[in-house]
Amino acid sequence: MSKAYRDTFTGPHLLGISGLNRLEVESLLDAAEEFVGPKQLQGRKKNYLSGRTQVNLFFEPSTRTQSSFEVAGKRLGADVINMALKTSSIAKGETLIDTAVTLNAMHPDLLVVRHGASGAAALLSQKVDCAVVNAGDGTHEHPTQALLDALTLRHHLGDLAGKRIAICGDIAHSRVARSNVILLTLLGAEVRLCGPVTLVPSSAHEWGVCVFTDMNNALDGCDAVMMLRLQSERMDSALIPSRREYFRFYGLDRGKLAHAKPGALVMHPGPMNRGVEIDSDIADDPAISLITEQGEMGVAVRMAVLDKLAGGAS
């Protein structure tokens, strides 16, 4: 762990990867290393956040991200509250800002927010006094997902500079893709995007990446392949003709993966649509699939983020 980086990232919020510099990203990844390993799996607690209140405010249903943040907060000793928004005043027409102001009056230390509208976390951060962590806002960013992906890749590939990484699938509607493009290019990786042209923003070539519509070409020589989830509402929209055509051209199978480097790693932010964007045979292959490991790194990265934003003397 490089001590020099330790305090580069100082918050006050984590709203996106955009706006962070390389030192800040590396300081977060280095900090997360402290939380990786068997002692957490044994459930031993640290008290970095004892006495702190963390509110998980999820306006969109989420299983893995919400529980990952909950586990991360609890391992650090925070009091974690999950807002059950389906039964709350949101359903009665209360606005995001009214909810935020009400919560703010309870003086939480951390607000972890997921919302269906791009920019919602940034808006919230302007209205509250505590640290805000963006756990996914619309089709904008999902910064902790990108950080956990980078941490996972770093464990297997070392320095990501010069590594070739393909991100495939529904780029246009993916906040995971946006955060990963920014973060991986920041770390010097060669990033490739691939998907049907109707699911890739027409300006994506301006993001410092190469854009492909042919998956075999996109995967050529790749060190790692990140598959994105195809939302079920997209499957039946006018953007793609059918699931079987999508899987034929954009689903990851052994044939396409053969174009990548031998032993190339496979990732997926979950939850997976097996047989739509990824073949089960690949998803379940422990030699190349990092999908389970991503879940473990998720807790470590979120512990680091929560600690940086609300830990220590304050």
């Binding site: 089709t139 906040r175 993001w207």
Partner: peptide
Amino acid sequence: NAGDFASRLGLS
């Protein structure tokens, strides 16, 4: 406006 800035912001 559709364009690079909109897609970076994640706005349609």
